[in-house]
């Protein structure tokens, strides 16, 4: 009797659960699952715009063949956009961890500093920053150059190094890296906040023990800070990777958008599908590796 009552209670609760999920199930099937299935179909078809919408005709793997044999940009773009994510992710996590550790301690104007470091998120996720980068900073006579490709450039620094007699080639690669870092700072806002919350949640007693044992700051970082924040670090790495893959300035996203705008819908779908499989593979692989390395305290 009792058990029966329990089971019906559970069943009743399940009903409520489905109620909470129902809008999402409708949404995800209409606007994600169904479009994904359609994308697969489109990628094997030729699309023509007829009197009543799109008409698809099956062409086999023609679209795929086009991209893997004829189109020379495709392969390059794919490899570049997947490969470039790795160094920029590494730089972003290093940078955001560093800033988070600096912002952790109490000091005057800490609130202002936090606001400034998050400010890029407000602006960088929109189109404005790339317009500033490509159309304002280069052509404004302030910089003198025809087109600037980086947000911040250090012409004086370059001159100093040139005066010191550093060879031009080496100089170029150094300034290239420095400029790259400045661009990445604009992409680290969310990551800094995530790391900040993780660093703030480390119990103070951990550090007290370490101090009693005479640990140096270096040891504290590697033995306490890093392992404790490693679960957050995993989230940050995956977030950064996805951010990189989804960003408007990503070569593949641009390629998909361009094909769509030129009404090459079948090509757009094919590229989209290949790219989406690659992204899933990379993100899956990285999170699998990281989940083995990260330190999860027993709860």
């Amino acid at each position: 009797m009792k058990r029966k009552g329990g089971r019906s209670l559970e069943r009743q609760r399940a009903k409520w659960g489905w109620l909470f999920l129902s809008p999402w199930i409708l949404g995800i099937s209409l606007f994600f699952v169904w479009p994904m299935i359609q994308t697969v179909i489109y990628s094997f078809s030729k699309l023509t715009v007829g009197p009543n919408g799109f008409e698809t005709s099956f062409v086999g793997a023609e679209n795929y063949l086009y991209f893997f044999t004829d189109n020379s940009f495709f392969y390059n773009n794919l490899v570049t956009s997947l490969w470039e994510a790795i160094p920029s992710t590494l730089l972003i996590i290093t940078f955001s961890t560093m800033i988070a550790l600096l912002l952790k301690e109490q000091f005057p104007l800490r609130g202002l500093a936090r606001a400034v470091f998050f400010l890029p998120v407000i602006i960088a996720s929109g189109p404005v920053i790339s317009i500033l980068e490509t159309q304002v900073m280069g052509n404004g006579a302030a910089m003198g150059a025809e087109t600037a490709t980086h947000l911040f450039q250090a012409p004086d620094l370059t001159l100093v190094f040139a005066d010191l007699g550093v060879p031009e080639k080496i100089l170029e690669s150094i300034t290239g890296i420095i400029n790259e870092i400045f661009d990445l700072m604009w992409k680290s806002g969310v990551q800094i906040l995530l790391m900040l919350s993780a660093v703030n949640n480390i119990p103070g007693s951990f550090y007290e023990v370490a101090m009693m044992e005479g640990a140096t700051a270096w040891e504290k970082f590697w033995k306490i800070t890093l392992p404790t924040v490693s679960p957050t670090l995993v989230v940050v790495v995956i977030y950064t990777l996805i951010d990189n893959f989804v960003g408007y300035d990503n070569l593949m996203i641009q390629m998909i958008t361009d094909y769509y705008k030129d009404t090459h819908y079948a090509y757009s779908s094919t590229v989209g599908l290949i790219y989406c499989v690659c992204v899933l593979a990379v993100v899956g692989l990285v999170s699998w590796i990281l989940s083995r390395v990260a330190f999860y305290s027993a709860e």
């Binding site: 995800i28 209409l30 606007f31 994600f32 699952v33 169904w34 479009p35 994904m36 359609q38 994308t39 489109y42 919408g53 799109f54 996805i242 893959f245 989804v246 996203i253 998909i256 958008t257 769509y260 819908y265 757009s268 779908s269 989209g272 599908l273 790219y275 989406c276 992204v279 899933l280 993100v283």
Partner: peptide, 22 residues
């Protein structure tokens, strides 16, 4: 499915969404 939805860029399946909205 939710995790997939986070990872997959929405531009990848934009054409069918356009058709559906039409």
């Amino acid at each position: 499915l939710l995790l997939f939805n986070i990872i997959v860029p929405s531009n990848c399946y934009i054409t069918p969404v356009y058709v559906l909205m039409t």
